[in-house]
């Protein structure tokens, strides 16, 4: 990371230098299974998403203000914070989903892979294919499972049936859904259970082969078992994808993420290793929030 950019980062970030490979040596256990603390840190160190003094306003109301942070590839970054703090707004800014809301304007820079996505020449189609998104509520289209997953690739112009089948299978396998649905791909996606639907949405997002996967509270509508499966899935995916997850559930953030950012009132308060955020935060607000004294 270039030196000039680092200057803009919060001091806590600089002190701990989270751009370095993960130094954590503990192992996480989810559902009794173990996984290495760091799968990707060795190789991927340059930021995929670079935000510099990024602000977004809804009319005159501020959504997020002066966000400056880097999000690193092949890892899970969690954004936590109280309701209305702008974490979802920031997440949706990364693939410009906020464009749908009238009277939105932005300031500052938000780079994905080095491109300013708020440049007027940005190809939204390409951007959204690079930056996939999974929503809070499972939102499979009212189509068959196959058509749901094939939706993205066919948008990219894949017409070949065999190729589509390959992509669908790969994506469903990657989303750990293949074994459950391989026999009835023609079935409507709405017939699946909530957890399956959310994994289908992940598969649908993966089918466009994105680099970044944005997850907006992906488990808030699911029961603990389905949540566990999604979290497992995130662990598997983080070796290949850059995952940004917004969550209300701090245990979940602690379980799945390597780095965590704490937002409050539209501002980035603290951004650090997850272990640090939860055990030894630098800011009082963060500590209040993670210990439950906030609000």
């Amino acid at each position: 990371m270039p030196e000039e950019e680092r200057k803009d980062m919060p001091t806590s970030v600089l002190k701990n230098d989270i751009t370095k490979p993960n130094v954590r040596t503990t192992t996480f256990t989810i559902d009794g299974r173990e996984r290495p603390a760091n799968l990707a840190g060795e190789t991927c160190t340059c930021a995929v998403i670079h935000s510099e003094n990024f602000s977004l306003h809804y009319g005159s109301k501020a959504g997020v203000q002066n966000i400056t942070m880097d999000i690193y590839p092949c890892s899970v970054t969690a954004i936590i914070g109280p309701s209305g703090c702008g974490k979802s707004t920031f997440l949706r800014s990364i693939n410009r989903m906020n464009d749908l809301i009238p009277h939105v304007h932005t300031e500052g820079k938000l780079l994905v892979d080095g491109h300013d996505i708020y440049d007027k020449h940005t190809n939204l189609v390409n951007l959204r294919q690079q930056v996939g998104m999974v929503f809070q509520k499972p939102n499979p289209f009212p189509k068959s499972i196959f058509d749901n997953v094939a939706y993205g690739p066919s948008l990219q112009g894949v017409r070949n049936k065999g190729e589509l089948q390959n992509v669908v299978e790969q994506s469903l396998r990657a989303a750990a859904l293949w074994e459950e649905v391989k026999d009835d791909l023609k079935k409507s996606a709405l017939a699946l259970s909530g957890g399956q639907q959310q994994r289908l949405c992940i598969a649908r997002a993966l089918a466009t082969k994105p680099r970044v996967l944005l997850m907006d509270e992906p488990c808030s509508a699911l029961d603990p078992i389905a949540t566990g499966r999604i979290e497992d899935l995130m662990h598997q995916l983080q070796s290949t994808y850059t995952i940004v997850i917004v969550t209300h559930n701090m245990q979940q953030a602690a379980r799945v993420s390597e780095r965590a950012a704490f937002f409050c009132l539209g501002e980035l308060i603290e951004y650090d290793w997850t272990s640090k955020i939860f055990s030894n935060p630098a800011k009082k607000e963060t500590e209040d929030y993670v210990t439950g004294r906030f609000g």
Binding site: N95, M97, L100, L124, V125, N126, L127, R128, Q129, G132, M133, F135, K137, N139, P140, F141, P142, K143, Y151, G152, L155, Q156, C201, R204, A205, T208
Partner: peptide
């Protein structure tokens, strides 16, 4: 038609027209 359908389609890179034809209209 739930807005989430439209969002899902747009998030996959579909244009507004394609979203209407492929998702909103059938729903």
């Amino acid at each position: 038609v739930p807005a989430t359908y439209k969002e899902g389609s747009l998030a996959l890179g579909a244009s507004r027209f394609h979203t209407f034809i492929a998702v909103t209209f059938p729903a």
